[in-house]
Simulated assay, not measured.
Amino acid sequence: MAGMAVKKRRSGLGTLIHGVGFLLAVLLVMHIVFVVTGFPTENGLAQSVAQAAEPLALFFPGLVQTQSEILQVFVDYGLAAGFWVLLCAVLARVFG
C-alpha cells in the first residue's frame, strides 16, 4: 500500500538498550532528588544511588560552573542523564 507508513518493530536488543539508558537516567535523577531534598546520606539507598551516580556522571561534574550548589548538582547530573538517554537512543536505533 503506497503512502502508508509502516511501523518498524524494535528488536529485543533495541528495547534492551533503551531500557538501560532509561535506568541510568533514573539513577542520576534519583541522585539529584536526594541531594536537592536533603535526603539523609546515612540511608543505604541514598548511599547506593550516590555511589552509582558518581561514575555515571562521567566528565560532566564541573564542566559548567554555577554559583549555587543545588544548581550545580542539577547541571552536572542532569547533563549526564540527558547524555545517557541520547546515547542509548542512538545505539538502540543503530542496533535495534
Rank of each mutant, 00 (worst) to 15 (best):
M1V: 09
G3I: 02
M4E: 10
A5L: 10
K7C: 07
R9D: 14
R10N: 09
S11H: 03
S11V: 06
L13I: 08
L13R: 06
L13S: 06
L13Y: 05
G14P: 04
G14K: 00
G14Q: 03
T15E: 14
L16K: 00
L16W: 08
L16V: 12
L16C: 07
H18W: 05
G19Y: 12
G21E: 08
L23Y: 10
L23S: 14
L24A: 12
L24P: 02
A25S: 13
A25D: 02
V26L: 10
V26E: 02
V26H: 06
L28S: 08
V29H: 07
V29L: 14
H31N: 09
H31D: 04
I32C: 10
I32A: 05
V33A: 11
V33P: 04
F34V: 02
F34K: 00
V35H: 06
V35F: 05
G38W: 09
G38P: 13
G38D: 08
F39T: 02
P40V: 02
E42P: 01
E42G: 14
E42V: 08
N43R: 00
N43A: 04
G44P: 01
G44A: 11
G44D: 08
G44M: 08
G44H: 10
L45Y: 04
A46P: 01
A46M: 01
A46L: 02
A46E: 00
Q47S: 12
Q47C: 00
Q47A: 14
Q47T: 10
Q47K: 15
S48F: 15
V49R: 03
A50P: 00
A50R: 15
Q51N: 13
Q51L: 03
A52I: 06
A52Y: 09
P55Q: 09
P55K: 02
P55H: 09
P55G: 04
P55I: 05
L56M: 11
A57K: 09
F59A: 09
F60T: 13
P61L: 13
P61Y: 13
G62P: 10
G62M: 12
L63G: 01
V64A: 02
Q65S: 13
Q65T: 12
S68G: 08
S68K: 09
E69I: 13
E69H: 05
I70D: 07
V73L: 12
F74R: 07
F74G: 05
F74N: 11
F74L: 15
V75W: 02
V75T: 06
Y77P: 03
Y77H: 11
G78L: 07
L79Y: 11
L79P: 11
A80T: 04
A80W: 03
A80E: 01
A80D: 03
A81W: 14
G82H: 10
F83V: 12
F83M: 09
F83R: 04
F83S: 06
W84R: 07
W84H: 15
W84K: 15
W84V: 12
V85M: 15
V85G: 01
C88E: 03
L91E: 04
A92E: 08
R93I: 01
R93D: 14
R93L: 10
G96N: 05
G96H: 01
G96I: 05
